[in-house]
Write a protein that binds this DNA or RNA. Structure first.
Lengths: 201, 201
DNA sequence: CATCCTACTTACCGAACGGTAAGTGTCAAG
DNA sequence: CTTGACACTTACCGTTCGGTAAGTAGGATG
């Protein structure tokens, strides 16, 4: 087994970008995490932006794989929606760095010159809206309304994910553990209320 | 009326910090927005962190004022909760820069050496939980559960706020306008479902 | 008219940044 | 034994960063 420096660099870069953002992270810092010089990194990735782009691509691919898997474990749309969204929560807990980077991207891509036409979350988002519109009671509603409903759930998941470190330090460890345990329960409740009210009304 | 350079510098700093974050923004860039040299800025604010701290303080004070006003327009807790949260949405739309900075702070303060014990949102958050626990059906639930419920709503509001620029460019202008119009409606629905299910159960 | 404060300016500093150029050791192939 | 690709290294470059020091124009005060 070779050292796989490239992969390790990508992992280190993910940590750095997640913690300090694109501007705050430095390529020498990333390389330094592995005890390498920054030129070793520049050998593998010609420019800082290339490195960042690759980190972003990895994340977006993982997200897409996750969603396709969730959709293919198909059932009735109600269950599908719940599964995907709860899965997204689990995913955000398992890959906190990814979530941090995604939210940072949301904040930064306005100041950088990015298209945002091909936003990595876009296919994920639209697939999810399509699933939601398969639910009786939501199928005849406007795209924009269903979009909002779905986006609200995604938003609270991702926001909670990036809040966790701060909340941990705000309350003590075990108080936050209770919160973290209750979160998916209340998330599920929220989704079920939403589905129920759509079906009922 | 004097030029009030200091205030203008704070406003410019807010724009810069919101757009590029603490690391990405430069004091020379902030001063340059007003056609001043960076030493002019350093005359008013000894260090970059002082400038940032003051921006943060302004935001947190505005937020606290807003919340106290919302709470004092008291009614039954159900209405109070809805008013505050919908007000928070309006506030986040009126002050998008503030929201961007708050979310950035959420991401950054882990890497900087900040206490997070006295997080600017903490009093806001706990007041809100207290209000929520005044609602029949929620009063006997655990603090952590009510916290999660409240935090979910806050999360989806703030997440939507920071998403708006990206969403605008993702869809065309008028498609996003429909989304933006539907959002508070669906937000209200979400809150009412939540209150209703608490009271009902 | 001299003095002092305010609100800046230009000049300068060391450190860190992203990035280029050129060299070096290792190792497999011809 | 030589060649050449690979995976780095040290050396260097120009720019930008936050921050210090010293100077200065304008106005109020004595």
């Amino acid at each position: 087994m070779q050292p796989d420096t490239r992969g390790q660099l990508l992992a280190a870069a993910k940590r750095q970008f997640a913690a300090k953002g694109f501007y705050g992270a430095s390529i020498s810092g990333v390389a330094g995490e592995l005890g390498l010089s920054k030129q070793a990194l520049l050998y593998h990735f010609k420019r800082k932006e290339d490195l960042y782009a690759e980190v972003l691509q990895e994340i977006s691919e993982r997200l897409l794989r996750f969603m396709r898997a969730a959709v293919s474990r198909a059932d009735v749309p109600e269950r599908q929606l719940e599964d995907i969204l709860l899965g997204l929560y689990v995913s955000s807990r398992e890959n906190p760095l990814d979530t941090q980077i995604l939210v940072r991207e949301l904040l930064d891509n306005q100041s950088r010159a990015e298209t945002a036409k091909d936003w990595y979350l876009r296919p994920f988002l639209e697939e999810l809206v399509a699933v939601a519109r398969g639910i009786p009671g939501l199928e005849d509603r406007a795209f924009s309304a269903v979009f909002c409903i779905v986006y609200q759930v995604i938003g609270c998941i991702q926001y909670f994910a990036i809040s966790s470190p701060t909340l941990t330090r705000m309350y003590d460890e075990q108080a936050f553990e209770r919160i973290r345990d209750d979160f998916p329960v209340e998330l599920r409740n929220q989704i079920r209320r939403l589905v129920a009210s759509s079906g009922g009304a």
